[in-house]
């Protein structure tokens, strides 16, 4: 609980983060930037968990626990994604999604 800050304000920040992430994910061409957008979305959700837990259900720490698991899983996901991006980079010498287009229709 942060004194002087209401739950609505925190939720506004987390929702903004989430949708900025969605926007970046859909519009960016660089694979690394897309992964950063993904991180923004995941962190927006993590803030939601902690904020709900602190403000509405302060009795038990289950929301914070979920946020911890989320951070760990997000790290695994990004590590794997980076590995696949590097594999791709070795083939096309670029990290641009526009060039990843051999499979279509």
């Amino acid at each position: 609980m942060i004194p002087g800050v209401s739950l609505i304000e925190i939720l506004t920040v987390s929702t903004l983060m989430f949708f900025i992430g969605v926007y970046g994910f859909l519009t960016r061409k660089n694979l690394i930037t897309i992964l950063m957008s993904l991180e923004l979305m995941l962190n927006g959700a993590a803030i939601n968990f902690v904020a709900f837990n602190k403000y509405l259900y302060p009795g038990q720490p289950n929301g914070q626990l979920f946020a911890l698991f989320l951070i760990a899983v997000a790290a695994c996901e990004v590590a794997l994604a980076i590995a696949i991006v590097i594999n791709l980079y070795r083939k096309i010498k670029a990290v641009d999604v526009e060039q990843v287009n051999t499979l279509k229709h």
Partner: peptide, 16 residues
């Protein structure tokens, strides 16, 4: 490689 990158990105979006 292309299948992998397409799958991991969509999976990431879905899990977020």
């Amino acid at each position: 490689a292309e299948a992998g990158i397409k799958f991991i990105l969509t999976a990431g979006l879905a899990s977020a």
